[in-house]
Design a protein around this nucleic acid. Structure first.
Lengths: 231, 231
DNA sequence: GTTGCCGATATTGTCAACAATAATTTCATT
DNA sequence: AATGAAATTATTGTTGACAATATCGGCAAC
């Protein structure tokens, strides 16, 4: 938590803080249920409470942070139900988006995407699971950006971040070794501008990720009884 | 602006204020570019500045309000580019969602949907264009809710609200008389649980709405030169 | 040793005063 | 009149103090 980052450089914008926290969530340095005390974050980013509070509102809107009145901000703990909705939403969106990506992607962009895959694989090989998950997520976000619609891309961003939380909640140890292969398959389809195949692969890929999770009621460890018993 | 509503009833939650402002936007009582002074809204809702400021952040996240530093909050003025993205996003999302709606919708729900259509038509007949647009939007939101995924439904909510702004920006006089007929067609397909037909109709419907708009650079009336000249 | 109560501490929520900036008005100059 | 500058007013942005609430620790009772 303390190492979310040193600032060094003068004023920090709300967006920068949001991005840092999202990155920390995607790297699983911030786990579901973690408390985010205002003062701690004020010190970490060298900003005022009011700014942190603004950031909390943004993150709450994106489903990444849960705000409990008089108790503060916590990293969200997706429920099994919510997890299913998020995956379904991702399939709905990314299935369509990838077809447009297949039409538009350039050779250069494919090269960049391969870097993401390689980076994620390298991180996984070094047992840096957090970085692996984050880069694997960035892969999907980049694909959405290539499709050229910033509105849908922003939706995908939100869903990918929430997926990181879902994986943190329900992921078993060995999952996500699969992503590298499937991502490479996807890139091959994109290289051929084969939208239909890319769509099918994306659909299968997302289903695969979801199926590898053990989505059921969270264990006691990460569970806040308060939330279970109706707040 | 002053008639956004009287409160009467004790404390007002952030969500209530957000909903009221969104409703005003959807009814086109708040037009693109309209300034939203903090004090005016404080008086209108009987709340403090800090609460209004929270609300602004939420609305800005949803693309309904634009925040200009040191100048305040304004109802967003979608650009032609943004308009295209929003419509494309709606087609992407609602095309898929409607298929699920077709599977799930009950006779009772179809009856409720008919009320929306009738209400919108009645409002249009009384020259209450704002109410007609709002109910027409609610129709889409309700369909998304029936599909059962609150995550995608929330995305549709945001996009529908932004569409109201787009219509306010680029709509010509007689458009939107069409919606009643197309919405009824959609309901027939849903009644038959004919997902394929519903999908095609929704696609066509959204394309139709977009095509009836005159999406090009806004006229000077609603335009802020400041924004045109870089910022 | 578990429970319940109470005080102490810490954290969050709210408000009002102040600072910073923008918008408006006034007035002088051409 | 139109322009420009300065002063006034209004609005937004930020801070810090205070109130409200929750959390923690100790202590007594069972």
């Amino acid at each position: 938590m303390d190492a979310l980052n040193r600032d060094l450089s003068g004023p920090v914008s709300d967006d920068q803080i949001v991005d840092r926290i999202v990155a920390a969530v995607m790297e699983r340095r911030l786990k579901p249920g973690a408390k985010l005390p205002e003062n701690t974050l004020c010190d970490a980013f060298g900003v005022s409470r009011s700014q942190i509070r603004r950031v909390f509102i943004v993150l709450a809107q994106r489903g990444i942070v849960a705000l409990h009145p008089n108790r503060g901000a916590f990293v969200a703990s997706p429920t099994p139900e919510e997890a299913r909705y998020v995956f379904e939403a991702r399939r709905t969106l990314e299935r369509s988006i990838i077809a447009e990506t297949a039409r538009r992607i350039t050779a250069e962009q494919i090269g960049e995407m391969r870097n993401y895959v390689a980076g994620s694989a390298a991180a996984a090989a070094m047992d840096n699971r957090g970085e692996a998950v984050r880069l694997s997520g960035e892969f999907h976000i980049q694909l959405a950006r290539v499709a050229g619609n910033p509105v849908t891309a922003r939706f995908v961003e939100e869903l990918v971040a929430r997926t990181s939380l879902i994986i943190a909640m329900f992921g078993s140890r060995q999952s996500f070794s699969c992503s590298e292969g499937e991502h490479n398959e996807l890139l091959e389809a994109l290289e051929d501008h084969d939208g239909a195949r890319a769509t099918a692969l994306m659909d299968h890929h997302l289903e695969h990720i979801e199926r590898e999770l053990d989505i059921q009621d969270a264990d006691a460890e990460t569970t806040d009884l308060r939330e279970i018993l109706s707040l």
